[in-house]
Design a protein around this nucleic acid. Sequence first.
DNA 1: TATTTCGCTGAATCTTTTT
DNA 2: TAAAAAGATTCAGCGAAAT
Lengths: 359, 359
Amino acid sequence: MSKLPLDTVLVGDCVSHLAALPEGSADLVFADPPYNLQLRGDLHRPNNSLVDAVDDDWDKFDNFAAYDAFTRAWLSEARRVLKPDGGLWVIGSYHNIFRVGAILQDLGFWILNDVVWRKTNPMPNFRGKRFCNAHETLIWAAKSEDAKPTFNYEALKELNEGLQMRSDWVLPICSGGERLKDPEGQKAHPTQKPEALLHRVILGTTHPGDVIVDPFFGTGTTGSVAKRLGRKFVGIEREERYARVARARIDSVTVHDRESLSVTSSKRSEPRVPFGHLVERNLLRPGEELVSVNGRHRAKVRADGTLIADRYAGSIHKVGAELEGAPSCNGWTYWHFKRDGKPVPIDWLRQQVRAEMTS
Amino acid sequence: MSKLPLDTVLVGDCVSHLAALPEGSADLVFADPPYNLQLRGDLHRPNNSLVDAVDDDWDKFDNFAAYDAFTRAWLSEARRVLKPDGGLWVIGSYHNIFRVGAILQDLGFWILNDVVWRKTNPMPNFRGKRFCNAHETLIWAAKSEDAKPTFNYEALKELNEGLQMRSDWVLPICSGGERLKDPEGQKAHPTQKPEALLHRVILGTTHPGDVIVDPFFGTGTTGSVAKRLGRKFVGIEREERYARVARARIDSVTVHDRESLSVTSSKRSEPRVPFGHLVERNLLRPGEELVSVNGRHRAKVRADGTLIADRYAGSIHKVGAELEGAPSCNGWTYWHFKRDGKPVPIDWLRQQVRAEMTS
DNA sequence: TATTTCGCTGAATCTTTTT
DNA sequence: TAAAAAGATTCAGCGAAAT
């Protein structure tokens, strides 16, 4: 149980290396495990060129049982390494993702979403025997059902032009200048993932400074994006040749400044301001009348920060809920006061107070 | 081992009913099993309305082991009922699909594709705690690795306007007039699937006259589309109330003539809408007659989005060009359908679909 | 009659803090 | 630890009602 070897690439078996990391030390695990593709013969394109298939040793397993045992081993260790509120991402294809998903459920992980990476430029199905395999699947899971993993909802919403982010992400595959090549011009790794994919994962489900563990580091896409976004990483990679490429790649990454790493945050993270403080500070006066957002109800402010309406008295939220016959009500946006004859939500006053607190 | 009860709905437990069907008798199994959602409390929208959740008994299982046992049971019987070259489709969400996928692999099924149904209009994530769950997953599998299941590659390609069909299908959820309601106006079934989804499945992976078994028949979407496309079906449904709705629904479907069921065997900035999508979504029906803009020529719509005229068959553009003896023809403005007795260009339908996509 | 507004709803594992 | 209170949160499509 050594200390976390931050921002380094460990070479060797991922299960042993994970086992050596301290329990409950990682904020996120991102894993791109072998897909167990089980390819048979060669595949040629209609123009007779040969498809450069994934035929590496690390993707070969004797049978499903062997793949399952391997999956159970690394997922168990990953779970141990995660903090209680940590998150897990795994990417895969139909060859392996169902087994991975079932096993992680069996281990106690709680699936939050499955996300589909829809490729804008997938390889076609050359033989016309199946649908063009145009997507891969990611699973996002928490360590347990009652955990509270990081989710930067507002930031992702901004990333999607003001609409909440969906479970289907349209992104091109990794090619062109981003694709790492060896000196002979051959691709350095057969399954390099696009940085845009990791950008969305890391931006959406970690905070700056968080520790991200990647047990199948490959050529270090996770490390590259983590560094760029001001996160820490621990990479584990079986093959020294990939680890070497990854280290050089990450060294050349420049970090964004702190300011650009901050993201839009939710209201929940803002300081709490009790309604009574507005009265206390004379921003609203006892006896002043508030009107509901729909204009149908009125209530009077009392000196202790409660409201009183026809038949109900209580907090701004409780009175709003009861007047509307609703299970709940956000009093801050529901109630309005009059300023120059126009109705203004009392939330505006709260914002004034908050601004004062931070300045 | 009785004979196949074609075009009927059997009421009762699907495992027992499947067990009573003859071995190797079905060309396709389409299954929409319970998802095992495991919902906890109520969920309200931001406007405080209550989400009508799937809380039916048939979706309740004690634990994963119980769900797995159920899944193994019906999948085993489904496999027995299938012909050697038969196909299997299962639809699910992240709650159950990983378990279903792993179990079907364990039983010897060979996965051909996983297909993602990307919803144009999913329910949002109201609490902002996750990604909007905007898709469901289908698995397409053969009975074994060396089987040769039906795949109408060219027909699907035509349906996608000349580009091979991908593993991500963009379709709206089942709503509006297609959604079955009881006399009180409540939805007849909580999880009715859109006919367009079944259209693509059945058109793509069966031949006319084939037998399709659906062990979770519900209100009979599979039967309805099967009948419309000239296929046979055997439906199994646990609840008599759903079976009754399904029978009435299917009785009201009219079958198209044989010719229109045969399929092909071998404005730039705006989103491309393949003509086949209009058929898939039932905006035009197979067998429906189109008239040329000058009234001189007629053609019939086929199920895969091609047209058939006197001596020509092919895309809307190709048939138009050949009938006119022209080098090319914009089929969108050339062909008209009848609405209230008046000819309307099919481009009008395309505009409806586009408006849906972009609004 | 055409257009706008408003309400309703869809397979959903959907909160956080204080008392 | 359980209960109560605070308070944060939605997109697209359809259809009825209102203008």
